[in-house]
Every structure is written in C-alpha cells, then in structure tokens.
C-alpha cells in the first residue's frame, strides 16, 4: 500500500517534470500545489472545526461545567465530550491539518530521493516504479539542479566563509507564520485548543527547520510552498489572525478560570 503511494507520487512528480521542460524544482512546487488543492476541503473543514472549538470556550454551558466539575476531572471530561458531540465539534481539529502533512512529507521525501536516483540501486528501483505511460528512458537522469540548489542534498549558501542554511531558515519562518496565523486571537490559557496550537507554533517550525537542515533541499521546496499556500488559504477563508504576528498580539483578554 505504502509502496503504491510512493509510486503514485513518483510518477506524478515525473509526469509534471516531463511536461514542464525537465525542471524538478518547479515540478515539486506544482506537485505541492496539487496536494494542497486535493487537501483543500479537508483543511477548510478542519479550520472551521478549530474555530468552533475556539467559540466553545466562550459558551456559557461550557464555562458552567468547568466550574461545576472543577474537582472531578473525569466527570468534566465526560461532560465536555457530550457537549462536543452534541455540537459536532472535533477537539483535535486544529492539529489535524498539520498532522496530516506527516505521511505526505515522508512520502514526498522518499519520492524525491527515489526520483533523483543518486545510486545505481536507486536508479534500478526508479525504473521499476514507473508506470507505462512515462518514457523513463528519456526522462532520466533527472536534472536535480534548481536555482542555486541541488535538490537531492541539503542546501546552504556560503556567505563570508559561513555556510548559511537559507532554505531551512525560510522553512522555519514560514512554518512559524502559518502556525501563528491559525492561533486564536483571544486565547484563553485554559483553552485546550489554544494550548495545542501554541505548542504546535513552537514545535513545528523547529522540527521542520531541522528536517530542512538535514534532508534533501527538494523537501524544503515542498515545505515553503506548502506553508505559503496554507497562509493564502487561511487568508482567503478569513481565518488568518495577522495580529498574532505582532509582539503580544495573541495575549489573552479572557481571565484564566479558577482551578
């Protein structure tokens, strides 16, 4: 199943590559747009779910049960689940759009590495992954050069003798911006969703920065494109909280609940 998934990615990537003048960087960008378009409805519904979860924090019934069952966590959890179920709210809605990227990231990384076929064994495996509609003989070797990068290797630019990982930095920044934009503007410190979003806003940029630093720069192209498209999507849906990017922009204006 996973192998078929990878083959599908490789063939789609190479089909795009073959039809745009053998530019693998551009193929990754177009492929990322394709992935974003396919997952657009999923992301959109989950963004709406996240908003609903945020709205719930200001709901009277929700606040009442928090006070009522403050000392009985089990009962509180049951009541919270009941309300969420009644209103059709998924408590993990804000994380899912990010988490769903994991299998895509892994599949894309494996696809980029397989498509670039940097070893004889890799080329042999690539030849066997290709569907009949592609003329693999004419496509390989894949041109791994894109702008100043070799897409099969980690990227860096040497400035004054120092190797600066520019793409990794851009990946970290765009991931941070995307995460911050989706955080509730008036986050309550006791809000589970906000806490999760806040955690993600730190964890994800650091993790993707490290990925970009360590792995093939083709993966960084995917991260950056995906992040930028995510930001555009949030903006188009009116969900982007631009104030969050300013210092102190997401400070709570709701008093913390008593424990």
């Amino acid at each position: 199943m996973w192998e078929f998934f990878i083959s599908l990615f490789v063939n789609t990537l190479l089909w795009i590559y073959d039809n745009i003048g053998h530019n693998f960087g551009l193929a990754i960008i177009l492929f990322t747009i394709l992935i974003r378009v396919i997952t657009w409805p999923l992301n959109a519904s989950q963004l709406k779910g996240a908003q609903a979860m945020q709205d719930l924090q200001n709901d009277k019934e929700w606040q009442e049960i928090q006070k009522k069952y403050a000392k009985d966590r089990e009962k509180l959890a049951q009541e919270q689940m009941r309300i969420q179920q009644e209103r059709g709210i998924n408590p993990f809605a804000s994380c899912l759009p990010t988490l769903i990227q994991f299998p895509i990231i892994i599949a894309l990384y494996q696809s980029v590495i397989r498509a670039l076929a940097t070893t004889p064994l890799g080329l042999l495996q690539l030849g066997r992954s290709i569907f009949p509609f592609l003329s693999i003989e004419s496509i390989i070797p894949i041109n791994s050069k894109f702008l100043w990068m070799d897409l099969g290797r980690p990227e860096s630019v040497t400035i004054l003798g120092f190797a600066i990982p520019t793409l990794a930095i851009v990946v970290g920044i765009t991931t941070y911006i995307q995460s911050k934009l989706t955080m509730p503007a008036n986050a309550n410190p006791n809000d589970q969703t906000a806490a999760m979003s806040s955690s993600m806003a730190i964890t994800m940029p650091l993790m993707l920065f490290w990925f970009a630093l360590t792995f093939a720069s083709g993966l960084s192209i995917y991260f950056i494109t995906s992040n930028l498209l995510g930001i555009v999507q949030y903006a188009l849906m009116g969900r982007a909280n631009w104030r969050n990017l300013l210092p102190g922009g997401n400070k709570s204006n709701t008093p913390p609940a008593k424990k």
């Binding site: 988490l99 994991f102 990231i105 892994i106 990384y109 494996q110 590495i113 964890t203 993790m207 990925f211 360590t214 792995f215 093939a216």
Partner: peptide, 14 residues
C-alpha cells in the same frame, strides 16, 4: 511521538 516517527522514517532512507 509523531515527529520522532517522521525523523526515523526520513532517516531510514537517507
């Protein structure tokens, strides 16, 4: 946990 799984999977092919 997911991040670690991702790192391991990515590392496995690099």
């Amino acid at each position: 946990l997911l991040a670690l799984a991702g790192v391991l999977l990515l590392s496995a092919c690099s």
